[in-house]
Design a protein around this nucleic acid. Structure first.
Lengths: 208, 208, 208, 208
DNA sequence: TATGAATGAGCCTTCATTCAT
DNA sequence: CATGAATGAAGGCTCATTCAT
């Protein structure tokens, strides 16, 4: 209702103005740039302010709002992107396997997941434990879901004994997650991954 | 969005006067009171604003700063206290045990830890995942340390096979932690604890 | 509160691309188009944002500034146009009249004015009570001036008794104006116009 | 959710700080001061920004929010105050009158109203035609209501002939209002009031 | 001419922290 | 010791206006 009060020079109706800086990108590219910059900035600093991103992107604050209605929207987009990337890398790794190959694949997947989370850096907290945390993730993209699928597969192949898949998936997720955190904080990767894999083997695999 | 309830009479928008009176209190007692109140408030609401605490303690905002230089200092003190309390409950549970009794105790301890974390409510996030998260915890108080001690004890008794204690302690911590989170978010306690215990048994115990 | 609908695909939050193509147009025609569109938009929504107008005109935002140095300039032009239109409709209605026909015409004119203002819709506030309000109106175009002329004519014909024409014109203007506002806000037209006409008759006409 | 990021000096947890200015008033007094300042500022400039008021009151911007949740709340309070003041001055002026005295009083009241509105200055627009405009006014306080009551009284006394009171009240309001506006814009008070009173007499009073 | 991405001043609101009483 | 009014840095969002293409 209240019109923004741009001041005019009394009678002349000439707006006062000041200097500017620089410009222009294809919208898709700019959005991409913002997303990428945010990815980088949040990854490094777990940053939180819109200005942190626009500054890093060397762009005016207002530009942000041309592409995202709010910070949370950006986070959602970021999360989407991260999940998508992970999902893409996971495709079709589990077709046509027997017990043995499944076990090897399973361990490899666990390690891959750990490395992926480590790579997320500050993104992890921002995207999965911050303001966005309670916003639902498309079921088929969630890590828990992927892990559950992995386990189910193992059970079907007889590679691991029957167990409470949902609950176990949650636990396995926590284990991978924790391992990643430790590595991210400077722990010895080999050692951590080793202990983790041993745990997985003892816990899940049939004594056979 | 959430409207502050502090000061306005809904209708008249006339400021309300709530009389209060200086109440001298022994400094130690006052500090105690603030800590206890904060404990309660943060536990319940995961509260965030200093005023939430002082209001609940029926104390002026400024009083807070007489006892804590900043909100973070309070959090540190709170965490200290929580850890202390947990440590106290843990004392001397492991003297004079054999393999069998150790295993039973170990499981019981795990469950107790889970329940403890669940009981923390909002404190958990605030103290262990918030602004304070990266501030170091006195080594001998940390859950990790206690867990490591527990494991070491088990190894010494031959109840569990030799393993990388530090790393394993971190993993076990994550497992307990995750279980607690799930319960706190409404998961079925029996089921979660059951799966967790099974994992612990398979992972740690000697096949004997 | 009102969310801009400009740019986001509700769900995906992916920016939408609406292709548009340069369309050269005779400058006069383009300016005309903008004015007409603004007229319509402001009339309907009492709109405020430049973008509302350019969007409705299916023209780029920047184009606006090719034809108007600022929003206020547009408003001034709009007002000019509205006044002109009204003036045109008023031309030559008062030639060759006697007392009786003048009185009838006068009342008709009052009603016409009221209806005109009602028809302005959102324009009314924007043009006569908004940012532009204090900018002077070309004397011979102002409603006040026209009303004064009408009155003067009546006095000359002896249809109404001598009075302070300028001042009375202001008052009459307010009366018509107010009546229009009431109607615009949903008041009963017949009733309002009726009372208004009665007032005019009693106030102005010679007891004869 | 997101805790404000006050920066601490790394380890020491000592907040950085800067200079300040000055202080303290009884809340009632401060609220009063803000209201009075706003009254003055809006009256003069028809101002709109919170900062205009706080600056004039030589108070920090945040202080405003200690007493009013938003600018609109302030406006409501201001309007309330203005109406109350007017109502108070109107009390009991119409008891025990006959036709003649009523007419005199009526005219006096009209003039008083005009002067009152003139005195409002920029407040008038801000309080009755701005953001607050659609918020309902307590019926018994509205100018229209008071005017209607006045007219009804006159009809009962036989001082004026029966008419459509509600509609007429609206019209009379507009007339007073317009007269006030003219005066506020520098018109000759005597002349304007004179014409207005003449109108009122001719319109309303019985030819008797 | 036309376009629409980019800019940044302007205004709002919150809340940790200070300090007069 | 205690109080709570006052402060102002932070950060969010909008939109008139500019300018590279």
């Amino acid at each position: 209702m209240r019109r923004r009060s741009v001041r005019y020079d009394g009678d002349t109706m000439t707006p006062k103005r000041v200097a500017r800086r620089r410009r222009r990108l294809d919208p898709r590219a700019r959005r991409e740039q913002l997303l990428a910059t945010a990815m980088r900035v949040v990854n490094r600093r777990g940053a939180c302010r819109i200005e942190d991103v626009t500054a890093a992107a060397r762009v005016a604050k207002g530009t942000f709002y041309l592409y995202f209605p709010s910070w949370e929207h950006l986070l959602v987009a970021l999360r989407e992107r991260v999940l998508e990337q992970y999902a893409r890398e996971t495709e079709n790794k589990f077709s046509g396997m027997d017990q043995t190959s499944w076990r090897a694949t399973c361990e490899a997947e666990c390690v891959r997941f750990v490395d992926f989370v480590v790579g997320l850096g500050g993104l992890h907290t921002a995207l999965f434990h911050g303001a966005i945390a309670d916003r639902p993730i498309a079921e088929e993209r969630s890590a828990r879901h992927l892990i559950a699928r992995l386990l189910r597969h193992g059970v079907e192949l007889g590679a691991i004994e029957a167990l409470d898949i949902e609950t176990s998936a949650g636990l396995l997720f926590a284990i991978l997650h924790s391992t990643a955190d430790e590595i991210a904080q400077g722990g010895n990767r080999e050692r951590l991954v080793g202990v983790m894999c041993q745990l997985v083997r003892r816990w899940l695999y049939q004594p056979s």
